[in-house]
């Protein structure tokens, strides 16, 4: 890939991550700018320190925003914003595994 093609691939993931961050800040009413959250930031425990009630809110929000249903048993999707991006937009994960 040329550097411009790499930038375009990166921009697609960054845009999905940005949508997720805006959704999290808005739905959970967090007092921070979405851009303060990093793509690699964990969402539970350390990191954003979300709790189980926040998870329920995010399940609803993700389905509304991205049309993707997540389930209780799949907590690893909340490992980071970027990990979540790969789940709501499978094309990103495909790009990662085929890179």
């Amino acid at each position: 890939m040329t550097i411009d093609e790499l930038r375009a691939t990166a921009a697609a993931r960054r845009e999905t991550c940005a949508r997720i961050k805006r959704m999290i800040v808005s739905r959970l009413d967090l007092p921070i700018e979405p851009e303060w959250i990093t793509d690699d930031q964990p969402l539970f425990g350390r990191g954003l320190e979300l709790d189980s009630l926040d998870v329920l809110e995010l399940y609803v929000a993700i389905e509304a925003e991205f049309g993707v249903a997540l389930y209780d048993s799949d907590m690893s999707v909340f490992g980071s914003v970027s990990r979540l991006a790969g789940h709501v937009d499978p094309a990103l994960t495909l790009a990662e595994t085929s890179a």
Binding site: M1, I3, L6, R7, T9, A10, A11, R13, R14, D39, D40, P42, S73, M75, S76, G79, S80, S82, R83, A85, G86, L92, T93, A95, E96, A99
Partner: peptide, 30 residues
């Protein structure tokens, strides 16, 4: 603008792939 998972870059003489964190999913999560 290049700090994202899923890119193929060159480090030294080797090809590398950028990743999504966490790179290994802890067993404790399940």
């Amino acid at each position: 603008d290049l700090a994202a998972a899923g890119l193929r870059l060159t480090v030294g003489d080797a090809e590398v792939t950028t990743l999504t964190s966490p790179y290994v999913t802890p067993k404790s999560w399940s």
